[in-house]
Computed example of a mutant assay.
Amino acid sequence: MRGIVLILITISTLLGNLKIYSPKAPPSIPLFNREYKGVTIDLYDRFNTAILPKIVKGEEALYIIPTNVAAKLFNKGIDISILATLSEGLLFFCSKEDKRLSEIKDKTIYVPAKGSSPDVITNIIIKKSQNIKIKYSSAPEIAKLMKAGRIDFSVLPQPLASMVESDNIKIFDMKKDWGKTDGEFTIPQVSIVAFNSILESKKIELNKFLIDFEKEIKKINESEELNFERLQPIGWKLSKNNLKRSLKKMNLTFNNNFQSVKVYLEKLYKKDPKLIGGKIPSEKFYKK
């Protein structure tokens, strides 16, 4: 688990002592956009120090975390199940040329955090024949370099990708490149998981929350209505208009049909089994 660093928001939802831990990222928007009774919010800087210990010691809660990290934890014996994926693709290729990631050759691209989901997905898409050199930095720093014109190509998640988009910088949803080989165009890199112990002990509270959460995601996607003030704790320095423009590209979803997850994990396994804990998770990983 070393090297996995995320800035996280902790959300304690007191629906019968049900807790949720969620990242400072687009999948948190539906949690903040409406009021869930008894919600409290705390900021965390690092997954390894703030969230991982809670999972390892078995704290009963819901966790919104990278899908491959969830698989890795499951394969290491942590008794969790995946409930749903929350985005079909947050990553965009940002380019000074009108070309997708799979179309460039002999270039240097900047990618956030070596070993992170963006790094893994990028390396699966590119081919050796493209002769691509990858350099690493933090996502905010890469966005600054792109906006300043100091680099020409990068991979960034939303909303940072929309922040750098301009007349000179094109952004391309990486789903099209991702699905070229097998026709599975979704990139389910973020999921909500839970300890199996609460699936029964807090079944009523959990089901109520998941129903409300799914409805909120659907509402946001259909109406694009955001409670801008409630979203401020997430920390994005975006205007209302820019956030709405980015929202369309976040591909938020509540998908508990796990076919895309299985394809995603198989691709990661073929790249490096260690990315998902050494093996393909069994069917017990998926909440039925």
Rank of each mutant, 00 (worst) to 15 (best):
A113K: 15
L247T: 04
L265Y: 09
R245N: 05
I7R: 12
I82K: 01
K72W: 04
K170Y: 13
I204E: 14
T253N: 09
P53L: 01
Y264W: 05
I41P: 08
I134W: 10
L265K: 00
E59C: 01
E97M: 04
I142E: 00
A113V: 07
R150K: 15
G58F: 06
P159S: 10
I234R: 06
T49C: 05
V263Y: 11
K262D: 09
G277Q: 01
F285S: 02
V5A: 08
E165K: 15
A148V: 03
S12H: 13
G235F: 09
D167Q: 13
V190W: 03
K96A: 09
I64S: 08
P157S: 06
V39P: 06
L8Q: 12
F254A: 00
K203A: 11
E103F: 07
T49N: 01
D45N: 07
S116P: 01
K271T: 00
I134F: 00
V261T: 04
Q189S: 15
S223R: 02
I126K: 02
K24L: 13
I78L: 02
L243F: 12
I142G: 07
E184H: 13
L156P: 10
I171Y: 00
E141Y: 14
G179C: 07
K54N: 07
Y44M: 10
S117R: 06
S197R: 14
K57R: 15
N131I: 12
K19M: 10
D272G: 07
P23L: 08
N131C: 11
Y264K: 04
L83H: 10
G277I: 03
V155E: 03
M174H: 06
S81C: 14
Q158G: 06
K147C: 04
V164G: 04
N131S: 14
D182P: 02
G58R: 00
K248R: 15
K76R: 13
N123F: 01
E224Y: 14
F228E: 12
N241K: 14
L252Q: 12
A61V: 05
P27E: 04
G58D: 00
G235R: 01
K99I: 06
E222A: 15
F213T: 06
P188D: 03
K19R: 13
I151Q: 07
Q158I: 02
Y136R: 00
P157W: 02
K203R: 15
T40I: 14
G3Q: 00
